[in-house]
Amino acid sequence: MFYRTPYVLFAVFFSLSGCGQDYSLAPPADSEKITVTVKLPKELKTETMWVMYRSATCKRISQGASGQRVERDGHHSVYKEFQRQGQSDLYQIELLKDGGGACKWHLANVTFGVVYADPTQFGENVTYGAGGGVVVIFDYNNSPRGGADIKVDGDLTIKKDYYPWVSESFIGAYKKDVSLITEGNDYFLSYQALKARQVYFEPMLHTGFLVRSEGPKVKKKGNYATFTYPDGSMESVPRAKPDFLKLQTIRTGRAADCFSLWRYANCPDRRPDLLPDWLPEPEKPGYGRYVIVDEWGNELPAYSYRLVGQDGQIFRDKSDTNGRTEPLPVSAHPLRKVEFPVERW
């Protein structure tokens, strides 16, 4: 298990109180369900899902630094295995949003992911390293791995490119492992999806674009790991992981900026799009927004747009961190014209 052990050990230092002796789950028959689906490449397998329920009724009691009593929401963990859907490459788990019971449990977050089914295909004694993990938070609290990097409305669809990385380390105990590399600085993708009832994860594995690294044999200032990329290029830099954007560029022939949401405006052949859905603004009746995405469907933040409404009114601004336009009056929908002015920064 790539995530279970440290948190289970952490949990035993606390006790639950406030529910007598019964703090088990007892979901009501009409509890809403959340379905998590993974579209699985043949080289990978799903990991056991860690499901965490939270209770404000049954507190978790601990001692503070000065010996004071500290109360936090109680946690209840459940572990579930994905089930294959027929002979397809789809694997699913159904979760109950309301955990019920005397503690009034509610679904707080899940941690799951994919790993290589057979790491030894990359060499004898090769083990699995890291990467391929996903955290989805369903309430306003952090997960055991911290807060969410991305917040979404409605259902959650995750489609990400992944590359195999074989790493060889020499200092200390010799180790050779294979990891999964995707965008971001962590090995886990982290989302908050308060309203999601469907979570879909599709790791798009590019097996033919393997990157290798060889760590230094002597611990010395200026000695770094050497990365060898699929095109034969090499670099020795103070970086913990391979350059994901470099891998994207090697595979597609497109500039690295095209794969960076915050630098997408600098992409030489950018292909932005405006989703046709009109999203009413709850806090501003009579107004709504559109969402700007790149050609892979990723929401583009701080991206310039010029929209001509149905009434001829012109709206020009930049999208927010979720790729949404500023609120537009309902009289602007549907739009007459959509433009993305060339602005570089």
Rank of each mutant, 00 (worst) to 15 (best):
S77E: 15
A148H: 06
F122H: 05
N142R: 10
A65D: 10
S62R: 14
D139A: 05
Q68T: 00
Y116F: 13
A102I: 00
H76P: 04
Q63W: 10
V114M: 14
Q87Y: 11
R69E: 08
G132W: 04
L95K: 10
Q68S: 09
R72N: 10
K104L: 03
D153C: 00
L90F: 14
K80N: 03
N109Y: 15
F138P: 00
K97D: 01
D139Q: 03
G113I: 03
Q63G: 12
I150Q: 15
S77T: 08
Y116R: 01
F122N: 12
G86S: 06
L95Q: 04
L96G: 08
L90T: 03
K151P: 02
G146Y: 08
R84Q: 15
S62K: 09
E71F: 04
I93V: 15
G100E: 01
V152C: 04
T120C: 01
T111W: 15
D118A: 12
Y140V: 08
K151Y: 06
S77K: 12
S66P: 00
V126G: 02
E94V: 11
R145N: 12
R72D: 03
Y128Q: 10
Q83K: 14
Q92N: 11
T120I: 04
G100K: 06
F112T: 13
H75K: 13
P119D: 02
V114S: 09
I137E: 00
S77I: 07
D149S: 11
I137W: 01
K80H: 04
G99A: 02
V134I: 15
G67V: 04
Q92A: 14
S143W: 10
V70M: 09
Q121T: 11
G113N: 03
E81H: 13
D139V: 04
Y91S: 07
V134T: 11
G74W: 06
W105I: 03
V134H: 06
V70Q: 12
R145E: 08
T111Q: 12
G133E: 08
D98W: 02
L90R: 12
K104N: 11
V136T: 06
S62D: 06
R72Q: 14
Y91T: 05
